[in-house]
């Protein structure tokens, strides 16, 4: 056997062996990569695992990795039969959906104009938008609270949607502009020659072509507004209108050591974000980097 191995390979055999070894190391790397991902995302697993345990099992020493038995009691009691949690989930849904639509309605035409209509100050406006994203949210929350108190917008959905849109709009425009730039100018010229008004060119020709951009912006606007905390904390003073993020923070004190219940609420609060992220991953990953950086 040993002598057989030492025989020189034919070129074909050598290539085959090389390819096989390369494939093995590829799978080795993939296994290490998978391990890294699993270890890194352990907190997410731990949240779900805790939420499915019996209240007493949460305190077992050493902690059990997997819940046994698996129980949904915390979900039933602290989510589905809890009016404050359901109300907070509804509030977040209303705020996030409102923000999504308002952001698209305001951001899409603005990004189009900045990309295509050769306005003055395009560079300046783009820099201001980028800067807007880099400012602390608390800087807006404080004056908005005082202003909204004056005009009666504290404790209203409208106030929360407006504030969240102020956060989402700058990145929406930054993300959408390159999409508009990639629309071939000839197509728009053709529309104009056929007698379309600028609005018709925008509506009939451009919009359908930039759907991926709209999905990216819509998903990010929804996800950030869903998880938004500072405005919920400051601009919604009554529990009736507080989003799930603020409610979850309130429960930390209220629930004391009922960690299974707290993790059940946390899991439900994270669920829409995880679902959207899983479904629209490639849009979101691209959007996150494009929205935060200057090319």
């Amino acid at each position: 056997m040993a002598t057989l191995d030492q025989q020189p390979d034919t070129a074909e055999q050598g290539q085959d062996r090389f390819a096989r070894r390369k494939r093995t190391t590829q799978y080795g790397k993939a296994a290490v990569g998978l391990l890294i991902v699993l270890v890194y995302l352990f907190p997410v697993f731990w949240m779900v695992s805790t939420s499915l345990k019996l209240r007493g099992d949460v305190f077992s020493i050493p902690p059990e990795l997997f819940p046994s038995p698996v129980v949904f009691g915390s979900y039933i009691e602290s989510v589905f039969q809890s009016p404050p949690v359901l109300r907070a989930l509804l509030n977040s849904l209303v705020i996030a959906t409102g923000t999504l639509f308002l952001t698209l309605v305001l951001g899409t035409p603005a990004a189009y104009a900045l990309a295509r209509l050769r306005l003055r100050f395009t560079v300046l406006i783009s820099l201001v938008l980028l800067l807007a994203q880099m400012l602390p949210t608390i800087n807006l929350a404080l004056p908005l609270f005082v202003i909204f108190t004056d005009v009666g917008l504290v404790d209203t959905y409208a106030g929360l949607i407006l504030a969240n849109t102020a956060l989402a709009l700058p990145f929406a425009i930054i993300i959408l502009r390159p999409f508009f730039l990639s629309v071939p100018g000839e197509l728009m010229d053709a529309g104009r020659v056929d007698g379309c008004t600028p609005f018709a060119v925008f509506r009939r020709i451009v919009l359908p072509l930039i759907r991926p951009g709209l999905i990216t912006v819509g998903a990010l606007a929804f996800v950030t507004a869903w998880g938004e905390f500072v405005f919920g904390l400051t601009l919604a003073t009554s529990e009736e209108l507080q989003p799930i993020s603020v409610a979850l923070n309130r429960f930390i004190g209220q629930y004391g050591t009922r960690w299974a219940d707290l993790m059940a609420v946390a899991t439900i609060a994270a669920l829409p974000v995880i679902v959207i992220f899983a479904g629209l991953q490639r849009f979101i990953v691209g959007g996150l980097t494009a929205g935060a950086t200057k090319e």
Partner: peptide, 9 residues
């Protein structure tokens, strides 16, 4: 996913 998770969560 850690980056998009609501910060309160």
């Amino acid at each position: 996913v850690t980056y998009v998770l609501p910060s309160v969560v």
